[in-house]
């Protein structure tokens, strides 16, 4: 429950919090703003402003390496998102049937990717796939992404599921709906906002990953973060400014979409 607090009261009680708040937002946004601004810089490398131009956008949209890395990232993120969401829906709808110990254990294992440092997960996965006789490449990449996207998809779907009102179902059951029909026709549609926001977050998490992927890629499976990491190591680069700006836009779009979707739950 949120309380409306009269403006005057807040000011008197906590002077300075407004300054801290605005300063923090500036701190969080200024660096990204600078990058976005320089993505429109006409200069070749120079950090000095040399006039407005969209030529680096044209360059990036025609850069075969960036395009193929982006395509690879989209494919991996797409498959990992669909797979992790499908698994997460099945898991959420059935997890209450597990024994208490089982559900605690399963929950801990499945949530581990959030807590374990990425570099550890990366080398651990590499060690594991080599042990079972796989070599780095597309399949291990997709499987690993699915595993670490899963908790993000699952949390959203579960939050939605926990918030469902049983009243909807009683009436449906009263009207003689079978269990399968109940799941397909009523539960899943009601879960939809959670599924979509879970999918969006899983997608972003997959698109974001550098560390784990770096141990699992091979020729032809270079993802976008791996490619831009290579560019960044060389220093300031106008193409990276453009890609960074586009990724920022993606984050904005996903956040707004998620807010809208989860916001609807309350009303």
């Amino acid at each position: 429950m949120k309380h409306k607090v009269p403006y005057a009261l807040k000011l008197r009680s906590f002077p300075g919090v407004g300054i801290a708040g605005v300063a923090s937002l500036v701190f969080l946004y200024f660096p990204m703003f600078v990058v976005a601004a320089f993505s429109f810089n006409d200069g070749n490398r120079a950090l000095a402003w040399q006039g407005f131009s969209i030529r680096w956008y044209e360059r990036v949209f025609h850069d075969a390496a960036i395009i193929s890395a982006t395509r690879m990232s989209l494919i991996v993120a797409g498959i990992a998102t669909v797979a992790s969401v499908v698994l997460a829906v099945a898991y959420v709808l059935a997890m209450d049937r597990l024994s208490r110990a089982g559900s605690v254990l399963a929950g801990a294992i499945l949530a581990a990717p959030i807590v374990v440092p990425e570099v550890v997960l990366g080398i651990a996965t590499l060690s594991f796939i080599r042990l079972i006789g796989m070599t780095p490449g597309f399949l291990p990449l997709v499987l690993a992404h699915t595993a670490f996207c899963f908790p993000f998809a699952m949390m959203n779907i579960r939050a939605r599921y926990d918030g469902l009102n049983p009243a909807y179902f009683e009436s449906a059951a009263d009207l003689g709906a079978t269990r399968a029909a109940l799941t397909w026709k009523i539960t899943l549609p009601l879960l939809a906002p959670g599924i979509v926001s879970g999918a969006l977050l899983a997608f972003v998490v997959s698109m974001d990953d550098y560390m784990i992927s770096s141990f699992l890629t091979s020729a032809g499976t270079t993802t976008l973060p791996i490619y831009i990491f290579g560019l960044i190591r060389k220093g300031v680069n106008p193409s990276v400014n453009v890609v960074a700006t586009l990724l920022l836009l993606m984050a904005i779009a996903v956040t707004v979409a998620t807010t809208v979707l989860t916001g609807r739950k309350k009303s």
Partner: peptide, 25 residues
């Protein structure tokens, strides 16, 4: 073609060993 990059000889060795000598031509 496809092309990837490394920064030191040792990184090249590590990647090839991790890949079981496959992946790159």
């Amino acid at each position: 073609y496809s092309i990837d990059f490394f920064d030191t000889n040792e990184t090249l060795l590590a990647k090839l060993e991790a890949n079981g000598n496959t992946g790159y031509d």
